[in-house]
């Protein structure tokens, strides 16, 4: 059964045609969030974004590597074969991360030690490879730049939120300053704490999708990247496709009603066939009765020329007063009239 595409999917298609910054930002940062929806680049998020400061330092390097790699790909690397481009993205990452480490060694030596071997690992960010291959290779430099900024924003937002939550509840601090939490849950600073936090963040995002587009949220629940529905183990399982009836659903024309309407429209054409006159006499009689009733109804709302002249002669105020007095309860005011 062919599923109807959600409105967000349509937005995704449209943005490739007319890439306005807002739609690009909405699509890359929220709808296709690299971490919470596409599960890309989890290592830095779960392992090192344990404080707000480290998260911001990581965000800066993410922006730099994303922009540099995507712009370079869109401008120079399009003609290279795909298998060599992958290696070049890594070299791009290295070209940014190595000087950044020198910079950090001078300005933030303590944070540099805290980041440990995870900072060099940012040289290899699957998000860069994905975005370069998916977008930058096929687009202009401008579009690649916008895409890099928007996807890096989505990634950085998750990094910073994770860092903030872990610092508050895991260390009882904000930006290194103590806040009065007596027993901070130090476990949150471990990678499993990171997984728990991004798990809840993914739930929050799903809840948001449910509000703006329930169908997309439903599709994510069934056909998410982590779904194994298409795998050989689970071919026949369709039980998960239940839709909660209490949830607000997007308006769709009821197909069964549409079919009935079509049938009714087709009926008169079938019934006037000459060969079927004898068999369908009762139905023809019914149709005649119906058409007579309709004609009678139409007569009721017809005006004679005299009535029209009388109506025309009445002033507009009289007509309004007359109708409002007679049918006061039936008038639908619609929007409220603003008070003067």
């Amino acid at each position: 059964m062919r599923k109807q595409k959600s409105s967000i999917d349509k937005v995704v298609k449209k943005e490739s045609e007319a890439s306005s910054f807002k739609t690009e930002m909405f699509t890359e940062a929220i709808v296709q969030n690299p971490v919470l929806v596409s599960t890309i680049g989890l290592c830095p998020v779960v392992a090192i974004s344990t404080t707000l400061k480290s998260a911001i330092l990581l965000s800066v390097i993410t922006y730099l590597t994303m922009i540099f790699s995507q712009v370079l790909t869109a401008s120079l690397l399009k003609k290279f074969p795909q298998w060599t481009r992958v290696a070049l993205y890594t070299l791009c990452g290295m070209a940014i991360v190595a000087p950044y480490m020198l910079f950090m060694q001078k300005l933030f030596p303590e944070d540099m030690i805290a980041l440990g071997i995870y900072l060099p690992l940012l040289t290899i960010n699957p998000l860069i490879t994905r975005q370069c291959e998916r977008v930058a290779v096929k687009s202009t430099v401008k579009h690649a730049f916008v895409n890099a900024v928007s996807s890096a924003s989505g990634y950085s937002a998750v990094l910073i939120m994770t860092g903030l939550v872990r610092e508050i509840f895991g260390s009882g601090k904000i930006w290194g300053y103590n806040i009065f939490i007596n027993h901070p849950a130090t476990a949150l600073t471990n990678p499993f704490g990171g997984f728990i936090i991004i798990g809840f963040m993914a739930v929050a995002l799903r809840w948001y999708f449910k509000k703006i587009d329930p169908q997309y949220a439903e599709e994510l629940a069934i056909h998410s990247r982590t779904s194994i529905k298409k795998s050989r183990y689970n071919k026949d399982k369709t039980s998960n496709e239940k839709i909660d009836e209490n949830e607000p659903q997007r308006f769709e024309p009821n197909k069964e009603i549409e079919k009935d309407i079509d049938k009714k429209e087709e009926k008169p054409e079938l019934e006037i066939k000459e060969n079927q006159v004898v068999d369908q006499e009762p139905e023809i009689e019914k149709n005649q009765e119906i058409s007579e009733k309709v004609a009678a109804e139409n007569k009721k709302i017809e005006f004679t020329s005299q009535e029209l002249e009388e109506l025309m002669s009445k002033s507009l105020d009289d007509i309004i007063n007359g109708t409002t007095n007679e049918n006061q309860n039936d008038v639908d005011l619609g929007e409220e009239v603003p008070e003067k």
Partner: peptide, 12 residues
Amino acid sequence: PNCFKGTPAVFM
């Protein structure tokens, strides 16, 4: 729950 299905449940 529907909100947890897919990616969030896998993270947990």
